[in-house]
Design a protein around this nucleic acid. Structure first.
Lengths: 142, 142
DNA sequence: GTAATTGCAAATACTTTGCCACGTA
DNA sequence: TACGTGGCAAAGTATTTGCAATTAC
């Protein structure tokens, strides 16, 4: 079963209806494998073209409520949304010039600290976000 | 020399004029010791009351250009701004319910990874942001 | 005196909601 | 059929800019 089918199934199981917009959004997020803005998703080829941004927005909201999507702030004015896959954590490397976003594959070194914070502060539902910003080689040489 | 004076001096040295608004903003940021939004700064007691938000915005922009302030996205719709002190790096713990923001005093475990990324990717001017999100004990029990 | 800075107001950008039509279950 | 969902359009919130008046140097 593909990632896309898996996600769709999960969304269905959590109460969402199987609509074109839902499929399009899940496909788009899964294909790109990086956080995307509402605008990007709304104009993301194939099926998404047909979806109003309000629809995409509300779907992302629902998916976020179900814990399948997370909303990020990455310095841009627009919010970013990314798939939340069980057991998968991802950090990002972002170019402050051209805005490119790429996932970092190195293991995240923060989990230990997160555990300490959980115990010392009593915070619950703890998670973290880690982003690296800089200028990519291409932008740096330009 | 106080932190405030130190900052003012630095701002002056980098070409900014010594105005009421500049002083007010530096004071406010230094006093609060945490990221603040444009709205917070604009209505931050004492002197800041007198500053238009456009003024505060443009000053933050200039301070950011000079490397004295950094702009953060912390999940809220509004952007946050924080002082950038030489040699000081700060991570934050944020309550997703009440929005409280507190600095984490534990040493940041990310510098090693940052160095690896610098070397492997060729990114320059690299820095990172690390935030922990969760619900604080007060909100969790409510 | 000159150039940076300010305030006000308007423009822009992005997000969020209301309402009724529509499609899925 | 019933209720979640979709599209359109409008409202809301935050950011950003234009311009003339003011202020720091």
């Amino acid at each position: 079963m593909s990632l896309h089918d898996d996600l769709l199934e999960k969304a269905r199981a959590s109460g969402l209806r199987r609509t074109k917009a839902l499929e399009a959004i899940l496909t788009c997020l899964a294909d790109h494998n990086r956080p995307m803005t509402l605008a990007e998703l709304t104009s993301c080829g194939h099926l998404s073209d047909q979806c109003d941004k309000a629809t995409v927005f509300r779907l992302l909201q629902r998916l976020s409520d179900k814990g399948m999507v997370r909303r990020l702030g990455l310095h841009e004015r627009a919010a970013y949304f990314t798939l939340l896959l069980p057991g998968v954590h991802r950090d990002y490397l972002i170019c402050t010039d051209c805005g490119s976003i790429e996932p970092i594959d190195a293991p995240c070194p923060v989990h230990k600290l997160e555990e300490e914070i959980r115990q010392e502060t009593g915070f619950v539902d703890l998670y973290h976000e880690l982003e690296f910003f800089g200028r990519c080689p291409k932008c740096a040489s330009a």
